[in-house]
Amino acid sequence: MRKIFKVLASLLFLPSLVLADGYPEKKIVYQITFNPGGGSDIRARQQQPMLEADLGVKIPIQYKPGGGGSLGWAELVKKKADGYFMSGINIPHIILQPLARDNAGYETEQIEPVILFQQIPFGITVMADSPFKTLEEMVAYAKENPGAVTIGGSGTWDATHIAHLQFEKMTGAKFTYVPHKGGKPKQTALLGGHTMASWFGVSEWLPYGDKVRNLAVATNEPVETNPDLPTFKSLGYDLLSSVYHGVGVPAGTPADAIARLEQSFTAIANDPEVRARKLKDGILPIAMSGADAKTLIADRKKIWAPIVKEFTQ
């Protein structure tokens, strides 16, 4: 009930939908919800000069880290919905945080996605000398020895955790999920032999080359960087897991402002040089429109809501 009230309240404070012809007329703040120097920051700083050239205004970058991004997104939905404040958004974070916490400070629906410009598919990775040669071997071992296989992830209620819970449900096997303080400590733990397997994104396993072995990736089609790597689907598990990065504005932002921003970001996302650099780092370049992103968010929320409910009660 409180959630409904909040959404209604945010609708009430809609600003005038009439927008001056000349959007944008002044600087547009680009908020990063993670620490300076992190992946989100460096990506935004790459986009910054191109955005400034295309939109003709300054794009200052502001930081509001904390709570796994939630502090920044809470800040975003408090801002005036006039098209002059945008923020980096991450899926699944903006779906899972409001689901899993009593008061994340924002609701998913209060954020209007402008574009999703990149995707990092996730999968299960082991060290090259691991006894598990295939996903099936690992699942079989876990079924015989419930809880004995440790699988690392980047945190709780993030992409790796939700994928893990879905995977356990599908296999019926019991693993020990070990959350870490983000991606890097998770990688270190696998490399040092502290965990037996780990949920890795393509960009995370690529640098380690032959030192690691990937068992499966959770996409519809095989990934470009590892064409021979089986998908979970091809092995009989209907699992899709990716982190998407994009940009959002407060719900209620005038449609033409969103369209203008989307146009600008889409041009950057489709730039051949930007695409090539992302692929080299193991990141899939995409240019998903705000409307498609909304559908994706709604679909994922439907699948995840019951799982989160089951494990938080």
Binding site: G67, L71, T156, P179
Partner: peptide, 22 residues
């Protein structure tokens, strides 16, 4: 104080969502 790094639970924020960052 704030969101537990590993379990993700929010602790000792006493009603201030801004304290979730610790």
């Amino acid at each position: 104080v704030g969101m537990a790094t590993l379990s993700g639970e929010v602790r000792l924020t006493f009603g201030f969502p801004e304290l979730q960052g610790g």
